[in-house]
Each structure stands twice: as C-alpha cells, then as structure tokens.
C-alpha cells in the first residue's frame, strides 16, 4: 500500500502536460488512485484539467466523469479525453442520481467551498465512497506563524489572508468530528508533507490530509 517511490513530481507540479509523456500524478492523487477499485465508476468534483481521471482511466479502467467550473480547465479536460461537466459545485450535485457512482472525489477543494456540510452530504448521496483532501491547518509551523503574529502562508496554502479562497480551513480532528456528525464512516487516512507521506503525529506534521469515507447509505447496503 505504500510503494510510491517512483513519484518524481512535486506536490505543486505544473499542469502543462503533453499528450504523450505525462508526468506522474502528485503523490496524493496516486494514493487516491489506490483507493479506487478497477473498473468502478468515479466522479471527480473540481476535476481541474482531468489529470486524475485520465490517470484512473488508463491505470484502473474506471468509467469516470469530472465536474469543473473553470473554462480553461474544462477545455483542458476535454482535450485529455475526459468526460467533464461544467458546473459550479456550490449548486450541489442535482445532476447526479443517488448512488450513481462507486467513488466520488473532492481533491483540495473542500476548504474553499461555502457549503461544506452540503457538499459532503451530496457526496455521500451520489456514491458509496467519498475521498476528500484538504490542507491541514493543524500543521505545527502554522501555530508558530500565528504565535509570531501572522497567518500562515506556505506551499500548500500560498495565499495571504485577504486573497485566500480557503474560507473553511480545518485540522484533521475537526474534519473527523464533522464526518462523524454526518454519519460518514472514515475508512482510510493518508497524510503528506510535500512529496513525503507522514505516518506519525499526522495531525501536527502533515500539510495535506486525504480521507476516504463510506456513506451511511453505502454502509447500510
């Protein structure tokens, strides 16, 4: 489960990829891919240029669809041969049926959404498994930064307080408490700092958390 030594792209790898010779996906996306069953149906919310879905189609033969709002990203995803639906996630997932997918992914987007609970509920509705990644606000240097009187700014959260899209930052425990309240059963957690997976004291030492959860509906079936 942890053989990721071939990864060479940094976490913030640029997305300019040619048709052939795509760089390997980021380490967190590789981990997400490991959690997805071959041949299953995947919905990628905020799919960007479709890189994860293209990778999943090639390596795990998934049948996938992405949701993305940005014009340029939608064009990039289409060029990549990924099915993408242009839509604002804040509007919910009304286009999608209950349990239409096996897994729904929300990669590094939760923290910038206004309706956090709503999107998590919607994810649990449309798929049995959900995967969510977000920057960990509990990363210990953040505390140091705040003690020094400044909001933290780093590679994972490269914004000043006044221009950040990240309006709902949380720690690992914060997320777990919300997940429990929504009836989402957490099945897996992976945590990263840059290209490295963090296995101990993840709440303090990781910059990016990736959770996999099972929806209450999925757990009943």
């Amino acid at each position: 489960m942890n053989a990721e030594s071939s990864v060479s792209a940094p976490l913030s790898a640029p997305v300019a990829a040619s048709q052939s010779g795509e760089p390997a996906p980021r380490i967190d996306l590789l981990r997400i891919a490991q959690w997805i069953a071959p041949g299953s149906r995947v919905l990628d919310l905020g799919c960007g240029d479709g890189r994860l879905l293209a990778y999943l189609q090639q390596t795990r033969q998934v049948r996938g669809a992405g949701v993305e709002i940005d014009d340029e990203q939608v064009i990039a995803a289409v060029r990549r041969g990924v099915s993408v639906i242009q839509q604002n996630l804040e509007g919910g997932l009304a286009l999608f049926d209950d349990a239409q997918f096996d897994t729904v992914v929300l990669s590094q987007t939760l923290q910038s959404m206004r309706h956090t609970e709503h999107i998590l509920r919607e994810m649990a509705r449309v798929a049995r498994y959900g995967i969510v990644s977000f920057p960990n606000f509990g990363y210990w240097p953040h505390g140091w930064s705040i003690l020094a009187g400044r909001m933290p700014v780093n590679d994972q959260m490269p914004y000043e307080w006044y221009d950040t899209p990240n309006i709902h930052l949380c720690t690992l425990r914060d997320f777990q408490i919300l997940a429990a309240r929504l009836g989402l059963r957490i099945t897996d957690l992976a945590a990263f700092r840059g290209e490295r997976e963090i296995r101990y004291l993840r709440g303090w030492r990781s910059m990016l958390a990736v959770y996999r959860f099972e929806s209450p509906a999925g757990a009943r079936s």
Binding site: R41, R63, D71, V78, S83, V84, I85, L95, F96, D97
Partner: peptide
C-alpha cells in the same frame, strides 16, 4: 441542456457538458 445531461447520466452514458458564458 442540463435536463439532457441528467437523463444521459442516469443511463450511465458518457457525457461532456460545457456551459459557455
């Protein structure tokens, strides 16, 4: 168009949908 997208998704068809501003 969204109505068609939704109906196609229900049938598990591959759909790409662009909403141009």
């Amino acid at each position: 168009s969204r109505e068609m997208v939704q109906a196609l998704l229900k049938n598990h068809r591959e759909v790409t949908y662009a909403e141009i501003d």
